[in-house]
Design a protein around this nucleic acid. Structure first.
Lengths: 238, 238
DNA sequence: GTCAATTTTTTTGTATACAAAAGAGATCAT
DNA sequence: ATGATCTCTTTTGTATACAAAAAAATTGAC
């Protein structure tokens, strides 16, 4: 599947080593291979990917610029651990950006946008019916990307994609919550309706709620997080 | 003047060479020392700053990650030239983020926030009375930062600051437009009123209008841009 | 045995070196 | 003279080398 023009840095896709490394490490962070707070050893990473330290450092520089990694002078790079409060803040901003995209989409969507939205929406439906969380997770992403694209604001779309990616791990946790998938789908339906009807304000508020709920759900999970922290793994910033 | 906790990357302030270089080059781009479309030669920059290519490259990597520089594989780095349409898109997003910050500020501001807002607001007033564009430009920035801070969403504040910085050169052009400064100040007054009254929706819409580039301002922007392009080194993306 | 100071080891940050690719320029054919 | 191909130059991308700083470990004092 191809998301033309939505991905940031698309022009750099022709992978120089450092670029591939950036994606690999970023993916590792988002996936959980590298845990929050974990130290990213340059030589270790270099060995792992079979390259020298130079491109590794360049990749880490880029990741630090987008806030996924923190480079402490002379003390190496660690995976940023946003902490519950910061994650909640990010959801708050995500809700606003998404709702903006939805409002713009309601006013500006073309026939192709409409087709893409409906297509991804029905994919979500199938996945929801099959109760296939993994599949729904992916389809849901495509659905949201379709709305970003329909906003016809490329910069906004890039921002949304970037933030969506960063929130991925926390969103993923949520889908496992009982019945969340079907509720999510019915929210989608209402959003699609508003966008296609050209009702910008309805699209805005429905999308805001749709995303904000995830933030709320997340704060429910915060207790789990802090419990986990007490027991072992994690480790807060600083 | 100190904007505690607002600047992104604040924790990296302890300047390793590459970090200082990043700031220097970023500043050069925002200031106009490096023009949009200009090629950033690594050896040239290295000579200029008296360092080797390595930290220069690391700085460029970071700048490319935040979208100020484009690194074309095997073809070097150039200063990104957003082009009028993209700039417009960025202002559209800025308007939404600012209005969000205003809405949150209306609901969440503390006494200290109130003091900071009023203080910066009255500084703007003095500068506007003296018709001191440069001074107003600076005070205006402080005013907006005070609102970001009052939103009590650190992530949002960072996003706002980053985008505000990127739009700096274009905003600056706008202040030169006749009478814009005094109009701007009266808009500020209405915004302050809404925030202090706790009227989130009024704050939101007033800030949106204040920031959005609409009507005449858009054509002013475009004509300024094309003039600059004609005279300068310019050159569109791609 | 515990704590502090010093030495050793690791690791980061920057410089340099080298290979490969892109760009510029010259040569040759038409 | 114009256009295309080949060569030479410049520039990027990655590896390696080295210096300085931080972390770890050893030694020594109490």
């Amino acid at each position: 599947m191809y998301f033309g023009g939505i991905f940031p840095f698309e022009d750099q896709m022709a992978g120089n080593t450092f670029h591939k490394l950036r994606d690999e490490i970023e993916n590792g962070i988002v996936t959980g291979t590298f845990e929050p707070g974990e130290r990213l050893d340059e030589v270790q990473l270099a060995a792992r990917f079979g390259v020298s330290r130079t491109p590794i450092r360049e990749a880490l520089m880029q990741l630090s610029a987008i806030g996924l990694v923190e480079i402490r002078p002379r003390r190496g790079a660690i995976v940023v651990d946003p902490g519950p409060d910061r994650i909640f803040e990010m959801f708050e901003v995500m809700a606003e950006l998404e709702s903006m995209a939805g409002a713009l989409a309601a006013r500006r969507h073309t026939e192709e946008d409409k087709a893409a939205i409906l297509e991804s929406h029905s994919r979500c439906e199938h996945s929801a019916e099959r109760e296939d969380t993994d599949s729904y997770y992916y389809d849901n992403e495509v659905f949201h990307y379709a709305i970003y694209a329909a906003s016809h604001n490329g910069f906004l779309a890039e921002q949304c994609v970037a933030l969506h990616r960063r929130l991925r791990p926390y969103r993923r946790l949520q889908l496992r919550v009982r019945n969340r998938m079907k509720v999510s789908f019915s929210e989608h339906a209402a959003i699609v309706e508003a966008i296609l009807a050209g009702d910008a304000e309805a699209a805005r508020s429905r999308l805001r709620d749709h995303v904000a709920v995830q933030g709320d759900r997340f704060s429910d999970l915060v207790s789990n997080l802090s419990r986990r922290e007490a027991t072992g793994a994690g480790g807060q910033r600083r």
